[in-house]
Simulated assay, not measured.
Amino acid sequence: MVGRLMIMALEKAGKDLTRANFLDAVYSTGTFDLGDATLEYGAGDNHGMGDVFLSVIKADGSFKSVEKLTK
């Protein structure tokens, strides 16, 4: 998820990348829809998501929730 967020933010920040315009891209976008998960950022909010879900990324790039841990 973090990788997808980084790609989206880097694309929005543009070719003359600085720390400031990268952070501005994240905060001004606010909501990043990653398909099965949504991350939200803003002034004073760097968490992205308040919940934690155990999941795996499948070969096609989609997410699958882990219902039970097994050996």
Rank of each mutant, 00 (worst) to 15 (best):
L23C: 02
K15P: 08
S28G: 07
D33L: 11
Y41F: 15
A37P: 07
D45G: 04
R19S: 07
T18G: 03
G42I: 15
D45L: 10
A20S: 11
G44L: 02
E11I: 13
G30R: 10
T18P: 02
A13S: 14
D36P: 02
N46M: 13
D33C: 07
T38C: 06
L17V: 06
A43R: 13
D24T: 05
T29H: 14
K12C: 04
Y41K: 05
A13R: 05
D33Y: 04
G42S: 12
F32S: 00
G44A: 08
V26P: 01
D24W: 07
D33V: 15
Y27M: 06
A13M: 13
D16S: 10
R19W: 01
L17H: 07
T29P: 05
F22G: 02
A25P: 12
F32V: 15
F32K: 00
A20H: 08
A43V: 15
D36V: 09
A37L: 12
E40R: 14
G35K: 01
D16H: 10
Y27G: 01
A20L: 06
N46H: 13
S28M: 11
E40C: 10
L34A: 07
L34M: 14
L39D: 04
K15W: 11
H47G: 02
D45P: 06
G35W: 05
D45E: 13
L39A: 06
G44R: 04
H47R: 07
S28L: 12
F32T: 11
S28K: 15
V26A: 00
